[in-house]
């Protein structure tokens, strides 16, 4: 597992790339910008990526992070990849429900089910 600028960690499992956000709180625009650059760099290096974003460490985020996820999602699909989210803390899941982003993102309980979903879709 590689740690990048301690904001994310990257792990490869089966044919999926698991990117975990390592900060407990993601708030400021500088944090969000750093995350965007880090994740986009992973996406751009792997056309057709099967990307899982793992939120297991994240207990608090701002609406700027929701915007970040929209941007990442667009970038993944531009590169003909697929995106899944997982391990979302209940409080944060409520934020996704309020903003109706539960209808935009495919959200799974854990890394295993998110990873499995790629092969089940074929």
């Amino acid at each position: 597992m590689a740690a990048i600028q301690p904001r994310i960690s990257v792990e490869y499992k089966d044919e999926a790339t698991i990117v975990a956000f390592t900060d407990e709180k993601i708030l400021e625009e500088t944090d969000v910008r750093a995350l965007r650059e880090a994740v986009e760099s992973v996406v751009e290096q792997a056309p057709g990526i099967h990307l899982v974003l793992d939120f297991r460490h994240v207990k608090f985020l701002s609406s700027a992070v929701l915007g970040l996820l929209i941007r990442i999602s667009k970038r993944v699909y531009e590169h003909e990849g697929e995106l899944r989210l997982c391990n979302i803390h209940p409080g944060i899941h409520e934020v996704f429900k309020i903003t109706r982003l539960t209808s935009v993102f495919e959200i799974y309980e854990d890394v295993e089910s998110a990873t499995r979903s790629f092969s089940e879709r074929r």
Partner: peptide, 16 residues
């Protein structure tokens, strides 16, 4: 939460 706005990166602060 409506239409194309769902896919815009900004504009969710006041709703929250």
């Amino acid at each position: 939460r409506v239409g194309e706005n769902l896919y815009r990166p900004e504009g969710r602060g006041l709703l929250l």
